[in-house]
């Protein structure tokens, strides 16, 4: 029975890295968000994700070692979550794409009796608020002024090619990936249309899309993000206060 345990650890690492990296990206908004309410909202969403990451990484090993002492190539997060915050519209598009995916994935995992069921059942309720937040902003920006519409559309288009990777099957997760992808396209498409936005048409899988984060290949901005996230821990090993 060693193989299933390893598979569970590997899957926990993939999901934990998604949560950790997106949490850090959202945390970068602290002190920079457009309004105080958003500052607090993004930090709270980041905190929820950090809680998920701690539980998941602890299933894979020592949470601190995994977060702070791994090299870029050892991270298993999808490339979507590592994309820079960009403007506020980019952050919202990334959050919409990811939280719709995460809600679908966790809803499924929560119903089984697998190792991820307890966390998924808990986190899915929090993710419903993340998705709601992203949807509201997508509607507001897409159906807002000409400028906000244009920037929201640009963000949705720019991140589209990172969305296919989320539906590559992950060993150890009991999920119907094809059905999830169909539901994701419907859910996201519905929000975009209500926001008067155009559903992007570019490729989501294949040569011109992203899709190797789960294998440890990451995009250029990720290295800089990791450097900032890890430097304190690496510069002062074992420090406490």
């Amino acid at each position: 029975m060693t193989a299933p345990v390893d598979t569970t650890a590997a899957a926990a690492l993939a999901l934990g890295d998604d949560a950790l990296v997106l949490s850090h990206r959202l945390g970068e908004w602290a002190g920079h968000a457009p309004v105080l309410e958003e500052e607090v909202a993004l930090a709270n969403i980041a905190l929820d994700l950090l809680g998920q990451a701690r539980t998941l990484l602890s299933m894979a090993g020592d949470e601190d070692e995994l977060a702070y002492l791994r090299e870029e190539r050892s991270f298993r997060n999808v490339q979507l979550v590592e994309q820079p915050n960009g403007d506020f519209a980019h952050t919202i598009a990334r959050q919409l794409y990811f939280s719709v995916y995460q809600q679908l994935l966790y809803s499924g995992l929560a119903t089984g009796d697998g190792p991820f069921a307890p966390l998924a059942a808990k986190a899915v309720k929090e993710v419903a608020y993340h998705r709601d937040h992203a949807e509201q902003w997508t509607l507001r920006l897409g159906d807002g002024t000409d400028l906000s519409h244009e920037r929201m559309q640009r963000a949705c288009d720019a991140l589209w090619r990172y969305t296919g990777e989320m539906f590559q099957p992950v060993d150890g997760l009991d999920a119907d990936w094809a059905a999830m992808e169909t539901a994701w396209l419907e859910g996201v498409g519905d929000v975009l249309r209500r926001a008067t936005l155009t559903v992007p048409e570019g490729p989501r899988t294949g040569a011109w899309s992203a899709g190797a984060g789960r294998q440890g290949l990451h995009t250029e901005p990720f290295g800089r993000m990791l450097a900032e996230m890890q430097h304190l821990h690496r510069s002062h090993p074992g420090a406490s206060w």
Binding site: E37, E38, V40, A41, A43, N44, I45, L47, D48, E126, Y129, D132, H133, Q136
Partner: peptide, 9 residues
């Protein structure tokens, strides 16, 4: 509603 998230999550 002013914000879905306040002083704590």
């Amino acid at each position: 509603l002013l914000s879905r998230f306040s002083s704590t999550a």
